[in-house]
């Protein structure tokens, strides 16, 4: 029976000896180095963060930052060339695809919150949004209390869906909540008169207006119900990779480069229709660019 303690001691010692080495050598960075390729998760219709243009090329604010991250990874690993693979993800499968290793880093419109942090890690925040309403200009709806007893649409699996349900529960607003499967379908539901308002992250609402047949008919109203921090998703417990990613985002934000990218996507005409979102930079965003961080709002 003396064998057991000896084995245990050896195991514990081995664990202590090997742990620091593993922590430094990030599994993701090692994989990128070994295979010479990185897989980026992107969205298909999250305008203007990550979406397809009319030539089916991925573009957007988040995607541009993602490419900056790839450059930083390349520099870190001292590789001449990294093969970049693109993988479209949806709000329903994005967490799983990051966890199971299909995607190395996902940048799109994913909110960093504490529940998700149990499954994945988040990079420094690259965008702060507020959840608001899109309505027809002639509808007379100005804010959330006007929605009592009406049909309201939102996209399934989003924080807005959660907030709407909670409003129904806590304030007895008796709204009928329609959960559409993506932002395009949510807007279709609003456009065809099935719902009087579409609740979503403000930046995405401006994006939908830019895509609409008659952009002048729609407006974004209401007091922001929540603030959310968008971050890139990485696998958990990979401090080495997260450090490189965070540094790349912070570098862009403090150097003023991110301001330029912001102006390009939010203050100027963007594909596919050449419309301008005209969304001035919020105080939260200015704050973030001064002091980059990876804090979640909830």
């Amino acid at each position: 029976m003396k064998l057991l303690p000896a084995v245990l001691t050896a195991a514990v010692a081995a664990a202590f000896l090997t742990t620091p080495a593993v922590a430094q050598e990030s599994a993701t960075l090692k994989k990128i180095k070994d295979t010479g390729s990185i897989t980026l998760g992107h969205r298909e219709s999250s305008i203007p963060f990550s979406y397809y243009d009319d030539k089916q090329q991925v573009i957007g604010y988040a995607y541009e930052l993602q490419r900056k991250i790839v450059d930083a990874v390349k520099a870190e690993l001292k590789l001449d060339k990294v093969d970049v693979k693109l993988m479209p993800v949806t709000s329903a499968n994005r967490i799983t695809l990051v966890q199971n290793g299909t995607v190395d880093i996902e940048c799109g419109s994913t909110t960093n919150n504490t529940e998700r942090q149990k499954q994945v890690a988040f990079s420094n925040t690259f965008f702060v949004i507020g959840t608001k309403l899109m309505v027809k200009k002639t509808s007379g709806i100005k804010d959330f209390p006007d929605l009592a007893g009406k049909n309201v649409v939102t996209t399934a699996g989003t924080t807005s869906e959660r907030l709407l349900r909670r409003m129904n529960e806590e304030k007895q607003m008796k709204m009928n909540i329609i959960s559409a499967k993506d932002h395009g379908e949510s807007f279709l539901t609003l456009e065809t008169g099935r719902a009087v308002a579409f609740m979503m992250d403000d930046a995405l609402l401006y994006g939908e207006i830019a895509k609409a047949k008659r952009p002048a008919d729609w407006e974004v109203v209401g007091t922001a119900q929540s603030k959310e921090a968008y971050g890139c998703m990485l696998r958990k417990d990979d401090a080495g990779f997260k450090k490189v990613v965070d540094a790349a985002i912070a570098q862009a934000q403090t150097s003023g480069e991110a301001d330029k990218i912001y102006a390009k996507w939010f203050m100027n005409p963007i594909p596919p229709k050449g419309l301008n979102l005209n969304m001035p930079m919020s105080d939260e965003m200015k704050e973030l660019h001064k002091a980059p961080n990876d804090r979640a709002y909830e």
């Binding site: 967490i95 529940e115 399934a156």
Partner: peptide
Amino acid sequence: GLIELSRQAQQLVDYTA
């Protein structure tokens, strides 16, 4: 958007991760 069984599964994924 009908909240049937497979939809609830997706909701659970979204809400509980």
